[in-house]
């Protein structure tokens, strides 16, 4: 079993996670389709998960608390996706659109 700490530095994983998170933030702000907003949230959660896993493997290698946290984050992400898509379906049933700009019901 080769050790992953030899060649790839921890920074490489952190950079990938940062890029994924920032792409998710941009998509979250700029998407007009509500389904794409949910997809961007999933991207952000995956970036955070990569971060947790990298730290768990490189710094906390014998206790791996980060992997347990990742499992919990995956659980919460699944629940969030289910509830978010249910909200989206009921919104679509009432408004017959998925355009984020027309969802201004809670805006003053």
């Amino acid at each position: 079993m080769f050790n992953s700490q030899d060649l790839i530095p921890l920074n490489a994983y952190l950079l990938i996670a940062s890029i994924l998170f920032c792409i998710g933030v941009w998509g979250l702000i700029n998407s007009r389709n509500a389904v794409r907003v949910l997809m961007s949230i999933e991207l952000m959660l995956n970036g955070v998960n990569i971060n947790l896993m990298a730290f768990s493997s490189y710094i906390d290698g014998n206790i791996i608390r980060g992997q347990v946290f990742t499992v919990f984050v995956i659980t919460v992400a699944a629940a969030e996706a289910a509830v978010g898509l249910a909200i989206l379906l009921s919104l679509y049933r009432n408004r017959t659109t998925v355009d984020m700009e027309s969802f201004n019901l809670l805006k003053w």
Binding site: N3, S4, Q5, P9, L10, N11, L14, L15, S18, F21, C22, S57, Y58, I59, D60, G61, N62, I64
Partner: peptide, 18 residues
């Protein structure tokens, strides 16, 4: 985020991975 990722001295190498 890049600046934090690159310039921070992370406590590597940690304990051996299991």
């Amino acid at each position: 985020l890049f600046r934090v990722d690159i310039t921070t001295n992370w406590a590597t190498p940690g304990p051996k991975a299991i």
